[in-house]
Simulated assay, not measured.
Amino acid sequence: MGKVSKPKGKEGKPKDSFKQSMRLEHSRFGQHLLKNPLIVDGMVERAAIRGTDTVLEVGPGTGNLTLKLLPKAKQVIAFEIDERMIAELIKRARGNGLERKLEIRKGDICKTGDLPPFDICVANIPYQISSPLVFKLLLHRPFFRCAILMVQREFAQRLVAPPGDKLYCRLTLNTQLLARVEHLMKVGRNNFRPPPKVDSSVIRIEPRNPPPPINFTEWDALTRIAFGRKNKTLSANFKTTSVMGTLTKNYALIQSTLQSKQSNSGTTAPPHLDIVELQKIVSAKVDAVLVSTQFADKRARNLDVDDFIKLLLEFNKVGIHFA
C-alpha cells in the first residue's frame, strides 16, 4: 500500500494538526503531557482527595489529569500559561459536565502573588519551575494537606536524599526542614508526549505543621555558608575571610544595639572594642561552638536537619547571628 501524504499548505509544508501544534507549543513551555492513564490514576489515588477538597493543579495541559480530579474534588483550580490548552481544557470539562467545578487561572504560577487557599496539590510540574514551585507551595499559608507531584527523577532523588548521599544538598536540607518527602513511583520518559530527555518520579510532600521555630533568614544564611564549598569541613567554611567579616559585622551591630539600650537604662555599658578585637572574639566563639557540637571536622553533606537546627541555636546562644 502506498504512503499517504499529509495535506500541504501554500508553501508545500505539511499542515500540523491541532493536537500536534498544541504538543509543540506546550513543550516550548517545558510541559510534557502525561499520556499513561494508569499513572494518572495512581497519582489521583495517592492524593486521597475528599469531596470537600479544593485541588490545585499546575500545567494541566489538555486535561488528562484534571478530568480525573474534577469528579472527586469540590473544586479544581488550574494554573495554565497556554491559551490553546486552556480552550481545550474548558471544552473537555464542559463535555463531561464538570465545567462548574473548574477554575482556570492563566499565567505563570511562580510569578503570581499569593496562591488561593487549597487542600491538595496534584500536578505534572514543568521541569524548569520544580524548585521555585516546591518552595512557593511550602511557604504558602494556610497549610495544605499534601502535594502529589510529578518531577524530574534526579530532582526527586535530591529531595529524598539522606545525609551522606552524593545528591544531598541545600535543596534537600531546606525541603526536609519544611516537609516530609516520600518517593512514590518511577515514571519512564515514554509515558509522556513528547518524551522528555530524562525519566520522572512521583513524590508526596507533606508540610510540617507547625514548622520548626527558627529564624528562616538566619537558617538560609547559615546553610549557604556550610554548603559553600561542599568538600570542605564546616570549620574551613566558617573561617574564610569573607564569612568571618560578615559574622563580625553582625556581632558588632548587635553589641552596639545592646550598648545603646544599656546607656539609655542607666546601666554601665561595656568598653568599645575595635574591629580587630571583635573579630578575635567572634573567631573564638565560632571555634567553641563547632567544637562543642562536634561538627568542626564534619562536612555539611553529612549533617541532617536536626544537626543544623542545633548548630544555629548554639551560635545564637553565644551572640553569633547570620542576618
Score class of each variant (00 low, 15 high):
K3V: 14
K3T: 11
K6E: 14
E11A: 13
G12A: 04
G12C: 01
R23E: 08
E25L: 14
H32C: 04
H32K: 06
H32D: 02
L34D: 04
N36R: 09
M43V: 01
E45C: 06
A47V: 05
R50Y: 05
T52M: 03
T54I: 15
L56A: 00
G61P: 10
N64V: 12
K68C: 04
P71N: 07
P71G: 01
P71F: 03
P71V: 00
K72L: 06
K74L: 06
I81M: 06
I86F: 01
R94T: 11
G97N: 00
E99W: 04
E99V: 11
E99D: 15
L102V: 06
E103W: 00
I104M: 02
D108P: 02
D108E: 11
I109A: 05
L115S: 10
L115Q: 08
P117Q: 04
N124L: 03
N124E: 04
I125L: 14
P126V: 12
Y127M: 02
S131F: 02
L137F: 00
L137W: 02
R141L: 09
A147F: 00
A147P: 00
V151D: 07
V151R: 06
V151T: 10
R153G: 01
Q157R: 13
R158S: 02
P163F: 03
L167C: 04
T172E: 03
T172F: 06
N174E: 10
T175C: 14
T175M: 01
K186R: 12
R189L: 09
N190W: 04
N191C: 15
R193H: 12
P196T: 03
V198K: 06
S201D: 15
I205D: 03
E206D: 07
P207Y: 00
P212T: 07
E218W: 12
W219A: 03
D220L: 06
R224G: 06
I225H: 12
A226M: 08
G228W: 07
R229A: 14
F238G: 14
K239H: 15
M244D: 07
M244Q: 14
T248R: 04
Q255N: 15
Q259C: 10
Q259D: 11
Q262A: 14
S263M: 14
G266W: 07
P271F: 09
L273H: 11
D274K: 12
D274V: 09
I275H: 13
E277Q: 15
Q279N: 13
Q279P: 03
I281G: 02
I281H: 05
A284C: 08
K285W: 02
V289R: 10
S292F: 09
T293C: 15
T293A: 08
F295E: 02
R301V: 05
R301T: 08
D307T: 05
I309Q: 01
I320Y: 10
F322L: 01
A323D: 13
